[in-house]
Computed example of a mutant assay.
Amino acid sequence: MESLSSTSIISAAIKPHPLSSRTKITRCSCSMKVASSFSYKKFIQYALDETKLSTSDLIPSSLQDDFSTLKAIDGKTELKMCSFQAPKIRLLRSLFIETSDGMQVLDFAVFPEAEFDLPIFCANFFTSANTNIVVLDLNPLHDVINETHYKEKYYKNLIPLGLKYAEILPWGGKLTSESLKFFSPIVIWTKFSSSHENHNILFSAFKDYYKAWLNLMDHAIEETDYSQISLNLEAQHRYLTWRAQKDPGFHVLKRLIGESLAKDVVKKFLFNGVNELGDKTFLDYFPEYESKDGSIIEKRSVIGKSFEKRPWDDLGAFIGNNFG
């Protein structure tokens, strides 16, 4: 997420390389053979296996024709991508990066079809030899700070799950108001040192959160009211527009594969739909980021309010004062 202080940590972990070799795009299958050491590959495989149990109609997305495996500029690092779709799933996609020095990045998300107001499953993980930076959430499609109905519909029964992992994986530090608008009361935002035990805890959290999301999907009823479908569509487009503009992953990708390909991966793959699901621009949704010359202010936050501690109570009520 844009506001996380991990941006500089992640960027520093990948040294820029001279543009000495052409980046290659090749086709590959999405099967993941899990190595004996810790790897995010098993997270992806688990999600695919569980999704197939929930829906027999999970099929490869057409995005796999263009986004499968990318060879980084260094000639060593590979970016592996998978994408699928299903009747209730507009896009299930993952990006997995592993460098020769053991650094790993996982960006995994599931976006619902507009006929369903399901939350967006989001897992953004960064791991190095010593550090882990984690965001795991069922990102709300609609406002959960002010809209009680939506929060109770999807999160009331999940609060115990969130509290369980809030104890094990404590709040990771300052988070800006802008980003909190896209997080739920059960969000896991944390940092921890690398260890076998901590990685097992993270895998357990991923499995529990993903099973919770699949359960919501299984019971989701298709919306037939066009006005509500339009609201869902715009809400998802707003989310995609924010993430495509502000996500720090772009800086990592730029270092690995160059600016042009990085833009393609961000806007056409990671946040696919930002160019297709709506016509509004970033400044249409977030006019507070417009500078005097009409360009977008690049600062991570223009509000200035940040939260050093978890801003939800044990009932899932927002307790952050002076929000925004």
Results as ranks from 00 to 15, higher is better:
R243W: 11
R243G: 13
R243M: 14
A244Q: 08
A244L: 00
A244C: 11
Q245T: 14
K246T: 13
P248C: 03
G249I: 01
F250M: 05
H251R: 09
H251D: 15
V252Q: 12
V252R: 09
L253V: 03
K254L: 05
K254V: 06
K254T: 14
K254D: 15
R255D: 14
R255W: 06
R255S: 15
L256W: 01
I257N: 11
I257R: 06
G258Q: 08
E259H: 09
E259Q: 11
S260Q: 14
S260D: 15
S260E: 15
L261Y: 15
L261H: 14
A262D: 14
K263C: 12
K263T: 13
K263D: 15
D264Q: 12
D264T: 10
D264P: 07
V265S: 04
V266L: 02
V266M: 11
V266F: 01
V266W: 02
K268L: 09
K268A: 07
L270H: 03
L270S: 09
F271P: 09
F271E: 06
N272P: 07
N272C: 11
N272G: 04
G273W: 03
N275V: 03
N275L: 08
E276T: 07
E276W: 00
E276Q: 04
E276F: 00
L277N: 00
L277H: 00
